[in-house]
Amino acid sequence: MTPFTVHTGIAASMPAPNVDTDVIMPKQFLKRIDRAGLAEGAFHDLRQDPGFVLNREPWSDASILICGENFGCGSSREYAVWGLMQWGIRVIVAPSIAGIFFGNCEKNGLLAITLPPDDVAALATLAADPATVEFEVDLPAQAIRHARGETSFDIPQARKTLLMEGKDHVARTLEHENDIAAYEAARLQPAPRLSSRIA
């Protein structure tokens, strides 16, 4: 995973609520066994409309999306996050971001930020004006810098560290292998088992 520290880029406003992962990555792009080739799928159906914000200058180069409520709701498909990243998106800001999608962002190094609706609206206004579309997102400082100053955001420490280090999350957990083994030895709950080579 690519570490995230400071990112400067163009912000685009997509204020619609409940933009679901079917819209972010339509089903015809889900028939793969790898993560590649998904840039073309990002917002594929919306992009058929020449008026869609990401089809217009300067937002065709946007790497920061200022979104509406409940962005990324619906299907768990991580293809949505892979596609957004391959399209060039590095930061998503919204009043709320759906749970599974939010987790998928973090695992892939896409910075997902939730802010109060008023803050998001102010950022959306800036992003909608070609004169003020450039933002600098500073994760260590927890701040978004723009033409009107700075908007700060909260992020739990563990998530911040994970994004800044860009470390493999499986490796991080395996550092606590002894805790998992201890749980299995002492506290396992009754659960079904299928065929297994482990006795």
Binding site: S76, R77, E78, V81, I100, F101, G103, N104, K107, N108, H169, V170, T173
Partner: peptide
């Protein structure tokens, strides 16, 4: 509950 692909790997 439902999870993404990175979590499946995890």
């Amino acid at each position: 509950y439902g999870i993404g692909t990175s979590e499946i790997e995890h």
